[in-house]
Design a protein around this nucleic acid. Structure first.
Lengths: 323, 323
DNA sequence: CACCGTTGTGGAAGCGTTCCCACGCGAGTC
DNA sequence: GACTCGCGTGGGAACGCTTCCACAACGGTG
C-alpha cells in the first residue's frame, strides 16, 4: 500500500502540486473549478498529509501539546485534564499526529517560549490557565494556540456556554419555588468563576431575589466548607448552585452530615455532568459540559491551521434528584 | 534564535553530516575520536533532532498509539482509558513524542496490521483487550507493543498486582468476621476477571468459607443487579467483594435502596481507588491501582525499545467506611 | 605482490511538504 | 493601444534528516 502524496493528488486533479497544496490548506487564491477537482481527488485517493513533511517544510511541527497552566502540578492528574487529553489524542490520531501533556510550571512565560521554539510542536491546547498565562503567550505562538475555556480576543477560545448553563440552573431552581439561592463559585484566579457569578447575578437580579456568593477551591472538601459557610451566613438558604459537580457533591455531603435534607430543605445543583454526578446521593442535578467535543474541535482546528475567534458549545440541564 | 541542525553539529565537529548522523543515532562504524567530537558539538550547540525531518527521511515516525481493544467503542470515553492516555502523554512529552488514541474496532486483527504498517507509529499500548486481541498482534509488531494489563508471554505486560490486592481485600473482610463473602467479577472476556476470581478462591478455600461468584459488566447498573442477585441466591451474604469501584458503588446503591445497611449488614469492597470511591456513601474500602505509574513505565520502556517480559505494580488496601 | 574484506568516511539522492517567485491573462486606466 | 493591476497558476528551491553508494586506507591472505 504505497503512500498517497500531494503529487498524486495533483496529477489526478490535473493541476500543479502548488495548487493542490493551496486547496488542501485553504490558503491563497484558487479557482472554484480547481478546488473541486482537488477535493474530489483527495477524497478518491484517500490522501492524508504527511505530518512530518508538513512540519519540515513549514518550519513548525506536528505534535499537539496540552499545556496545563495552573499554578499547581496536581491538576495534571485531574480527570478533566485527562478527558481533554484523551479526546485530543483521538482527534489527533485521525490526522496522524500525537499529543503530549505538559505542565507550564511556575514560570509559564518561560515554558511557553520554549514551546514556541520547539520544532516538534504543531499546536498548543491551553487548559486550566490563569489570565496571566493567557497574556504570556508569545506573539509567534498565538497562531498555534487554542484555549480550552474562556479567553480574551488574542487567543481563540473553545468553551462551553457556562453562562447559559448556570443561568438555566438558577432559573430551574427559582422555578421550583426557591427564593434564597447561594452561588458556590471557584477560586478567583479561575476565569470561569467570574463568568459563573455574572450569569447567576443576572438571573437573580431579574427575579428580584438576593445575590449571595461564596468562593471555594474546586475540591469536595472546599464544597463542604462552602455549604456550611453559606448556612451560617444566610440561615434561610434553600438552594445551592455550585460551579462544578465536585463542589456540589462536597456540599451535599456536608448537608447530609448536618441533617439537612436534599432537595427538601436545600436544593443543590452542580456543573459538568461528571460520571459521579449520577451516583451521588439523590442524583445530582447539573448541566452538561461537552469536554470531549470541545477538545476535539480545538485540536482539529489547530491541526488544520484554521483560525476561529471563539466557539462556544451548548450546555443543557440534566434533572436528577437534587434539585 | 536559529534552529541548530545536524549540519551545524557536523561543521563544529569537523566531520561530515553522515558521520554526525551515525553518532547521534548510535548506528554504524564510527571512530572513537569522531564520536567524541560530535557528542561534544551536540552538547555545546544544544542540538535536538527535528522529529519531522527524521520521520520524513526514515519513513517511520515515533508516535505512541494507545489502542483500545474492547469490543465496544464506549470505553474510549472511559475514565480509565483517559488516565492511561494522560499518563502516557506526559511520559512521551519528555521524549519529544506524541500519543494518539485509537479504537481497534470490530476487527482488531486488521487494525493491528494497519498499525504495524503505519510508518508513523513507534509503539502501541494495548488497553482493555480480550485474549483474542492479544493473539492477533502481528509478529513484526510484537517488539513495539506493551499491554496495560495481564498478558501471555508473547507481549510484555505492565499490570497491577490485582491478585494480591483482591486477596488482601478478601482477607480484610474475613478478618472483620464475615463468613459469607460473594465475589462480583467482571465479564468473562476480560482477562482480569479470571485472575480476580482465582485470587478470591484461593483465600476463601484456605479460610474454609464457601466460594460464591457472580459476574457483571463493569457498570454501576450491573453492579446493582449483581448485588440483588447475590442476596437472592445466598440470603446470608454478609460481604461483597467487587472487582471494580464502579461495580461496588452500584452494589452499594442497590443495597441502600433495599434497606440493607453498609457495612453493618453487608460489607462492600471495590478495586481501583477511583476518585469517587472516597465520595460514595460511607466511603468505599478498596485497593489502589496505580494506573498512571503503570502507563508511564510502559510508555518509557516502549520508547527506549527496552524489552521487559512483565512488570507488576503493587496494590494496597485503602480502608474506608464500607468494610 | 595482486587480491580481498573490513573499517571509517564523505557525497548525494531523496522523503512530502510549503512557500517564494515568476508567468500568463483578462479587465481596467490614461 | 500601451500600461498597470490582480488573480490564478506552475516551477523550483528549500526544510533537516536518513540512507545508499562509493571510496580510501588498511592489514591479512593466497
Amino acid at each position: 500500500m504505497p503512500t498517497v502524496t500531494l503529487d498524486d493528488v495533483a496529477a489526478a486533479a490535473r493541476v500543479s502540486r502548488s495548487t493542490a497544496s493551496r486547496v488542501v490548506r485553504g490558503t491563497g487564491p484558487v479557482s472554484a473549478e480547481a478546488r473541486r477537482a482537488v477535493l474530489a481527488a483527495v477524497e478518491h485517493l484517500g490522501y492524508v498529509p504527511h505530518p512530518g513533511a508538513r512540519a519540515l517544510a513549514s518550519g513548525h511541527g506536528e505534535r499537539v501539546v496540552v499545556a496545563v497552566g495552573s499554578p499547581s502540578a496536581d491538576l495534571l492528574a485531574d480527570p478533566y485534564v485527562a478527558r481533554v487529553v484523551s479526546a485530543a489524542s483521538r482527534a489527533a490520531d485521525t490526522q496522524g499526529v500525537g499529543v503530549a501533556l505538559r505542565w507550564l510550571g511556575l514560570d509559564p512565560r518561560d515554558e511557553l517560549r520554549r514551546l514556541a521554539r520547539d520544532p516538534g510542536v504543531g499546536g498548543v491546547l491551553l487548559v486550566d490557565y490563569t489570565a496571566d498565562v493567557l497574556a504570556s503567550v508569545p506573539r509567534d505562538l498565538v497562531a498555534r494556540v487554542a484555549a480550552i475555556g474562556p479567553a480574551d480576543g488574542r487567543v481563540p477560545s473553545y468553551d462551553v456556554d457556562a453562562a447559559a448553563g448556570i443561568a438555566a440552573l438558577v432559573e430551574h431552581v427559582l422555578a421550583t419555588g426557591r427564593r434564597d439561592v447561594v452561588m458556590v463559585t471557584g477560586p478567583g484566579w479561575l476565569p470561569g468563576s467570574r463568568r459563573a457569578v455574572d450569569a447567576y447575578e443576572a438571573v437573580t437580579r431579574a427575579a428580584g431575589v438576593p445575590r449571595r456568593v461564596v468562593s471555594a477551591d474546586l475540591t469536595t472538601g472546599a464544597g463542604a466548607d462552602a455549604a456550611r459557610e453559606a448556612r451560617r451566613r444566610w440561615p434561610g438558604v434553600d438552594a445551592l448552585v455550585a460551579m462544578s459537580d465536585t463542589l456540589a457533591v462536597g456540599a451535599m455531603r456536608a448537608l447530609a452530615e448536618d441533617g439537612v435534607r436534599v432537595p427538601d430543605d436545600v436544593a443543590v445543583t452542580g456543573f459538568d455532568d461528571q460520571p459521579f454526578a449520577e451516583q451521588a446521593g439523590p442524583g445530582l442535578t447539573t448541566a452538561t459540559h461537552p469536554v470531549e467535543r470541545i477538545a476535539a474541535a480545538a485540536t482539529t482546528a489547530l491541526l488544520g491551521r484554521r483560525r476561529e475567534e471563539r466557539r462556544t458549545f451548548p450546555s443543557v440541564v440534566v434533572r436528577r434528584g437534587s434539585a
